[in-house]
Write a protein that binds this DNA or RNA. Structure first.
Length: 910
DNA sequence: ACTATCACG
DNA sequence: ACGTACGTGATAGTT
């Protein structure tokens, strides 16, 4: 595997393919200056993907030269059917050449031959020079070049290059039915309309494959022409011999051109960022900039890290270490009226990390660093009390706007250090998320949005085992680093604030997301009490139970094996016990619960495995893990809510995830019992009833669906009545269950097949149900179509509050990719509207709790429910206040209904 | 680092 | 003819 790799790009084929793939797409087609750039984008995209995925040691690129080739001389019809190259494609080819030059990839082209011939020749030379070769192309002809050393990277059928496959000899055989050496002969027989190779009339794919399986090429066919059956085919071949032979010449790639190829010139070493980045900017391919291969990172020991400020940026960063400077800084921040801030700390966990320093930036290029916890301070260190005296008037002043990247973190740290911060105005991370950015790190955004390559933290603290705490780093370097963080945050703020405005995201941002930050901070720092004793007892019982099941499984299998290994489990079930295999995963047999469920009547072992899986999962994920995560500080369990993670606007929860605590089954309930209210308190759970379906009713405006909710009907029964055409009295629990699945399926963009898998219905019944559903709820169908249409027309879909999800694949040529995009487009407005509603409710509930000076605390949000910890004497107020404000959070065309439960723990509530 | 599996809404 | 439900995060096994 140490053989070096040469990647050869077929520029012409790639650009053509990208051009046609994007032709009907409205996305990414035209830049602000009106330049058509879709094919350039497609090309650059695959270029970067290949550099990242294949990490070639060498690369080269081949272009077609204009003008006739030897093939034209052989056949005046060659490529005669090709339409004139579109003018916007010609312009893009120039851009591609610019791109290739910026990347410093050696260009090969030769008059009279096509890119394929050059590539064939280059590949041969390279293999003789001792490399492996991968050809990246959109032209299937290159498949004939495949051998042990040469492979072809080619897009999957119908797709763009977002989905490629690497073709080796076996894959070529699979695709064509013949090995690579016979691909040219195959094409000579079948013909190729796009190249106007006529082939042998009457011979199609099937016959060609059959002939070539019997005879090893065109020559072999004619040598054995007497043996060919049926007679008619033999006669056709005889008659068309010259056509066949000429077609073979046309379709055979030349591999012995005289070219001047020196492997050494093709080193895929460093390219010139100063050329590539500006070009990508000019073409408005900002999303591609952060996918550029990173320059080898300055390792902490090897060379002196280049400390910001980067040379091209004008900035004034200052270490604040005298009382005079501190006073001046307070005045400066007050005068500016707004500033970005960033903290340096001893760790990432807000519960344990300590403040090391604080940086602030009141204007672009202006930064100040306040050291607090440096160990080897050369100069002045500030005491918290000194900073408080000077800065509290600034920090606590709600009229002085605070800007931060992931403000929640810095504010938690500052709060724990004893500061109160008011006036949080702008979180650049949340803003970037609303704008659809995927990579949300400050460094990543600075690079993709500001074009600034920031010093990685590892340049200061090192990486891996020898990593040190920032409190031990050089003070001056740390100051520069920290100031750069605040400065870049400020710059991003200035860039993103108007962008939010332009994209109509400002209200959502300032009225929902930003005010939610302190709410989430309070939830996180509140934590929840956990009965660790209860869980420890469970752990012991589960261990004993698991051991028993394990023994049983080994006995039935005849030998011990690792039940948690899908590979070994598959071998036992399917190879040894010969159970019928269900679906397959691409690594082997599928052994998930759906497959095992089908097999549970066929062998005793299956039930045991299912039980083992359930118990082992619950034990390792919850029972054993949660007690360990209880904070030493207050004996409570603190999750972390991520506000900028999901594509739909939901929150997510991690470390630990408290949004997926088991609830189904007796064991799940038991785990929930470990989440308790402290003495004198109760847990109150308020959950929205059917919020997603109510959101769907509102968004679609479907009369029937709205009526059902306005009548406070049981929505699943209501749907069952419509699906079966029966009165309520005749709806059985099974019917209701199917209706429920269909109700949810619609929200997910389900197909007949999907419903079949999710139920025990047949395919026909499933399809029938879906059809009937849309007949009975015509507004829903119209809405779903309109939503897909919006995604296609604008490139995004949105929720009731205007939250967006960009759907780049909605016009994908690949059907699978496109349909997946359609399902996302359908689901997001529904799921996202629910997320909007509960976020507003959280703000309203908390505002009212504060106004009434209640001691109750919001602890958790689980997508459609809020969990409060309520002092017993407040239950009367809270059980009225919470559901009322939740139900009134937004005004929909259907009522919002909230169910209440309370109890001493999360498992037993009523 | 990736895959398969499974917990939740 | 083909592949198949939306959104998350954690774990264990495998590379």
């Amino acid at each position: 595997m140490n053989t070096p790799l040469l990647v050869i790009f077929d520029a012409s084929a790639l650009v053509h393919r990208a051009f046609h793939a994007f032709k009907y797409s409205r996305q990414l087609t035209v830049s602000k200056t009106g330049e058509v750039t879709s094919a350039v984008f497609g090309f650059t995209n695959i270029l970067l993907k290949v550099l990242a995925d294949l990490k070639p040691d060498y690369y080269a690129i081949a272009f077609d030269r204009k003008g006739p080739t030897f093939r034209h001389e052989l056949s005046d019809k060659y490529k005669a059917h090709r339409p004139e190259t579109a003018p916007e494609l010609i312009a893009q080819l120039g851009r591609v050449r610019q791109m290739v030059e910026a990347f410093d990839i050696p260009i090969f082209e030769q008059q009279g031959y096509e890119a394929d011939d050059l590539i064939g020749t280059l590949a041969g030379c390279a293999v003789r020079a001792g490399t492996r070769v991968i050809i990246v192309t959109g032209d299937a002809d290159a498949m004939q070049l495949v051998n042990d050393d040469i492979k072809v990277l080619y897009p999957k059928p119908g797709g763009t290059f977002s989905d490629t496959r690497l073709f080796d000899a076996e894959a070529v055989n699979e695709k064509f039915g013949v090995p690579p050496s016979l691909v040219a002969a195959y094409k000579a027989l079948v013909g190729d309309t796009s190249d106007n190779i006529k082939g042998v009339p009457g011979i199609g794919q099937k016959t060609a494959v059959r002939l070539l399986n019997d005879y090893d090429g065109i020559d072999a066919i004619y040598e054995n022409i007497e043996l060919i059956r049926p007679e008619k085919l033999r006669e056709t071949l005889r008659r068309e011999e010259s056509a066949a032979r000429q077609s073979l010449t046309l379709s055979t790639i030349v591999t012995d051109l005289p070219v001047d190829f020196k492997l050494e010139q093709c080193h895929a070493g460093r390219f010139n960022r100063e050329k590539v980045v500006p070009l990508l900017r000019e073409l408005e391919f900002t999303s591609l900039i952060n996918r550029l291969p990173q320059p080898p990172s300055a390792s902490a020991s090897a060379e002196v890290p280049s400390v910001l400020p980067p040379p091209e940026i004008d900035c004034r960063y200052q270490l604040v270490d005298t009382p005079e400077q501190l006073a001046a800084l307070a005045a400066r921040l007050t005068e500016a009226g707004r500033f970005a801030l960033d903290t340096e700390t001893t760790g990432l966990d807000t519960m344990t990390a300590e403040l090391v320093g604080l940086s602030v930036a009141p204007a672009t290029g202006e930064g100040y660093y306040l050291p607090v916890g440096h160990l080897e301070a050369v100069g002045r260190q500030w005491l918290i009390s000194e900073l408080s005296t000077a800065l509290d008037p600034v920090l606590a002043d709600p009229n002085i706007k605070k800007i931060a990247h992931n403000a929640k973190y810095d504010l938690q740290i500052l709060r724990r250090a004893g500061f109160t911060v008011a006036g949080l105005d702008f979180d650049t991370m949340l803003a970037a998320h609303l704008l659809g950015e995927k990579s949300l790190s400050l460094k990543g955004l600075a690079f993709s949005r500001l074009g600034v390559e920031m010093t990685p933290i590892t340049a200061l603290i090192g990486e891996g085992k020898r990593q040190i705490c920032i409190s031990r780093c050089d003070l001056k370097e740390t100051a520069d680093y920290a100031c750069a963080d605040a400065d870049m945050t400020f710059r991003l703020y200035e860039l993103l604030a108007p962008e939010l405005e332009r994209e109509n995201q400002s209200r959502l941002f300032h009225e929902v997301e930003m005010p939610l930050v302190p709410v989430i901070m309070d939830m996180e720092s509140a934590g929840i009490t956990l009965d660790t004793g209860l869980l420890k007892g469970m752990s012991g019982r589960l261990a004993a139970q698991l051991e028993k099941i394990e023994t049983g499984i080994y006995e039935l299998a005849g030998h011990p094996f690792n039940i948690a290994s899908p590979k070994q489990l598959g071998a036992v079930l399917f190879d040894e016990l010969h159970l019928p295999t269900g679906r397959k995963t691409h690594t082997g047999y599928c052994t998930d619960a759906a497959v095992l469920d089908e097999l549970k009547d066929q062998h005793e072992i299956v039930r045991l495995i299912l039980e083992y899986r359930t118990l082992a999962k619950l034990k390792s994920t919850y029972v054993d893990t949660l007690p360990v995560m209880v904070a030493a500080e207050d004996g409570r369990l603190h999750t972390s809510f991520n506000q900028a993670r999901t594509a739909t606007g939901r929150l997510s929860s991690s470390e630990p995830n408290l949004q997926n605590i088991p609830v189904r089954g007796e064991l799940g309930r038991e785990i929930r019992r470990a989440f308790t209210a402290p003495p004198g308190h109760l847990l109150l759970a308020a959950d929205y009833s059917q919020i997603d379906l109510r959101a769907l009713a509102h968004l679609s405006g479907d009369r029937e669906l709205i009526n059902a909710f306005q009548n406070d009907d049981d929505i699943h029964t209501a749907t069952a009545m419509r699906l079966y055409g029966l009165p309520q009295a005749e709806i059985t629990p099974d019917m209701r269950r199917f209706a429920k699945t269909v109700n949810f399926g619609v929200i997910y963009g389900m197909s007949g097949y999907g419903l079949e898998q999710a139920t025990e219905l047949t395919r026909e019944e499933s399809t029938r149900f879906i059809t009937t559903y849309f007949e009975r709820y015509p507004g829903v169908r119209a809405y779903l179509d309109a939503t897909k249409g919006q995604a296609r027309a604008r490139g995004y879909v949105e929720t009731i509050l205007g939250r967006r999800r960009y759907i780049p694949d909605i016009n994908a040529a690949n059907r699978q990719v496109r349909e997946a995009a359609e399902r996302m487009a359908i689901n997001m407005p529904v799921q996202g509207t629910s997320a909007d509603i509960i976020k507003v409710a959280m703000l309203d509930v908390r505002r009212e709790m504060a106004r009434q000076k209640l001691q109750s605390r919001l602890l958790l949000q689980v997508h459609d429910e809020l969990i409060f910890e309520v002092p017993q004497q407040e239950m009367f107020f809270m059980s009225e206040l919470a559901p009322r404000l939740m139900a009134e959070a937004v005004k929909l065309d259907v009522p919002l209904k909230v169910d209440l439960k309370y109890g001493a723990n999360w498992g037993e509530m009523e």
